[in-house]
Write a protein that binds this DNA or RNA. Structure first.
Length: 233
RNA sequence: UACACUCAAAGAUAAGU
């Protein structure tokens, strides 16, 4: 076992990315895995810029990034809305032939979407060999974030015709789209789905449902949801 | 030695002001 891989997550859990950095600096064998752990540690501590700067240091150290590394770096770009760095990492993804990795591509598509480049996000999506629920949800969330609620709902339908079952995150995103589209009927259907899947008692889900019913003009249903909430703050 | 399994990476995080 290479303990170096676990040092960063351990220190990050105890709240100190600085300690993680010190431990990392003393490692004799810095592998691509330990670099990736440190990058993720910085991101978890809200220091995405520092995480990104490790990219170059890693190259200087002569360590090649894996798809895990590039996924982490893309996440840092997303946090910083740094599309220029994101594009560079995209080039690196192509160079290493990682374009078939579904984790990496969902991070890539999310990066483009969150940076406002919805066309590029769509392109990444269309080129994906396999699309799981995370890819679909990232695209749906991207449409919503960029003000295309109608596209989001179309995408929600399309994913289901293609046999992918929405999960709690997908349902929550789609509810937001229903709110802005005033799509009460679809909102009700999603509500039914949420109840069946037993996500009803989740406070965030409950709040999003209430918001949807209010924006769609149904105070009565909003109140019903409210009455069933386990916590009413 | 081979095979299998497990082990690091991706999506929502609400409303209002």
């Amino acid at each position: 076992i290479d303990l170096g891989n676990y040092i960063a997550p351990m220190f990050v859990e105890s709240g100190s990315v600085t300690d993680a950095q010190h431990a990392f600096d003393r490692l004799l064998h810095r592998t691509e895995h330990s670099w990736t752990s440190l990058i993720l540690g910085y991101i978890d501590c809200g220091q995405a810029q520092a995480a990104l700067s490790l990219h170059q240091k890693m190259q200087e150290d002569g360590v090649n990034p894996s798809c895990f590394t590039l996924t982490a770096l893309l996440k840092a770009c997303t946090r910083l809305k740094d599309i220029d760095n994101g594009r560079q990492i995209h080039e690196e993804v192509k160079k290493h032939g990682f374009e078939g990795d579904v984790f990496l591509c969902s991070a890539l598509l999310d990066m483009y979407a969150k940076c406002g480049a919805i066309l590029e996000a769509e392109e990444v999506f269309e080129r994906l060999p396999v699309r799981n629920v995370v890819c679909w949800t990232a695209l749906i969330a991207g449409y919503i974030e960029n003000g295309f609620a109608e596209q989001a709902l179309k995408c929600f339908n399309r994913m289901q015709t293609e046999g992918i079952t929405p999960d709690a995150v997908t349902l929550l995103c789609s509810l937001k789209a229903c709110s802005s589209m005033r799509a009460l009927d679809l909102g009700r259907q999603i509500h039914t789905d949420i109840v069946q899947k037993k996500h009803e008692r989740d406070v965030i889900v409950g709040n999003t449902l209430i918001d949807m019913y209010i924006k769609c003009g149904s105070i009565e249903e909003a109140h019903e949801v409210f009455d069933k909430l386990p916590v009413q703050d």
